[in-house]
Design a protein around this nucleic acid. Sequence first.
DNA 1: CGGCTTTTTGAACCCCATCAATATCCGTGG
DNA 2: CCACGGATATTGATGGGGTTCAAAAAGCCG
Lengths: 249, 249
Amino acid sequence: MPKPAIAPLIDIADLKVSCSKCSLSALCLPYGLNREELDHLEQTLIHKPTLRANEALYFAGDDYRGLCAVRSGSFKTVLTTPDGAEQITGFYLPGELLGLDGLGQDKYRCSAIALETASVCEIRKEEFKTICSRIPNLQEQILRLMGNNFSQDQERLLSMGQLKGEERIATFLISMGQRLRARGFSSTRFNLTMSRHDLANYLGLAVETLSRMLSHLQERKLIAVNRRSIEILEEERIRKLAHLECRHG
Amino acid sequence: MPKPAIAPLIDIADLKVSCSKCSLSALCLPYGLNREELDHLEQTLIHKPTLRANEALYFAGDDYRGLCAVRSGSFKTVLTTPDGAEQITGFYLPGELLGLDGLGQDKYRCSAIALETASVCEIRKEEFKTICSRIPNLQEQILRLMGNNFSQDQERLLSMGQLKGEERIATFLISMGQRLRARGFSSTRFNLTMSRHDLANYLGLAVETLSRMLSHLQERKLIAVNRRSIEILEEERIRKLAHLECRHG
DNA sequence: CGGCTTTTTGAACCCCATCAATATCCGTGG
DNA sequence: CCACGGATATTGATGGGGTTCAAAAAGCCG
């Protein structure tokens, strides 16, 4: 074969992390950092290879390697019981932080699985301490992301403990809309990246129940749903279902 | 009244924080710190006044002030919906970290309420950054405590999503036993510090269901329960109920 | 088109919430 | 010390929300 004259298919320059050009900087680690701090950060982050749907970023039981910020695509984290039952503990969108479950015992407790083609930026644990001390603002931002993660889990506990199935679905739809809007997408029209099975598991429902309830919401013209595409038609009423509005009831 | 010759009732020296003398150092913030680091830490921690049962350490909506390590007694954290429904998101024992829910939005999202006479050591947020950079080992330990907190929430999500009421109760009993054992108490005989109402809410059950199921576990001689005193009689079988053992089934 | 997965729909049952009543504990004051 | 009242906890009966089993429908990909 003749030596190719064309550029290589993968441009090394593109693989280099560039937080300053990343559209997520307002949500992700770089938030609040100045130029110099950004340079530091970019030198420390590892841009890991792209994952395809159903590939794992890490498995439960793996040694903790570091935290990962989702760069593109989406993930689920799955916790498994000794007897094989699985619980999806979260869905992760670009700019959100994966790997916190590894901090406590120095081993990941869940598996992180890509729901679609996805990529992440990693801060390895060895670098973490040094970069935090060199960039105090980064530490602040990481704490903020951790805190949000934490709050989200607590809201889910509330959802699981207090709400009926349909109310949990409403909560999920509103919450997903808000997270998408923060990323520049519509908060009322979007495509889910997870299967019904995954979503039902996440919500603590049977697949059949989820499907039935989505149909029911559609019959009442509160949402339009077709496979994985969702449109929220009556946001007010969905919010009320989710117990997010207490007036006009 | 004559000037008292006896010592004042409250010895100022006792109010001063002394991590080095605290029995929790193996679980709490001081873990892994050397003598010098401990001195730094002690200078930064604020030993807050004792709280009595049902008093709040902070309320949902309060500005984030800092993290608190439980020193004695126990707490619950409560998340409230706009329409007044409450969910207890966690119980906290000595050495555990309160206040993480304030990190994300710089406001506490839940209220932290003492279940009995209790006290905490506080790291104010202003001090947090500086002390972390001065004591790298402390940062590591705080991350570990955060990670444990996080893992615990995820396990609860699994419990709420996958397990039946009785199985959730079993999970709670085993988990509480383990936490108490780590603090030097029996893992099979202990007194609960929370009411049935609080525990039922925490587990996502009705009070009546919880009471019934505790009675049922007692009838089957798996536990002995009297009001708030608990004895686990058949730990193996309780663990199996909690899906923590998959063999010998 | 044919085989697979994913999703939806249908019917029966069960766990658990709810309503209602009783029992027990605990602090207060007579 | 005991009597009283309120909070806390247990027990009983009924009904509903959601699971489970079963099967059909719809999408996906070769």
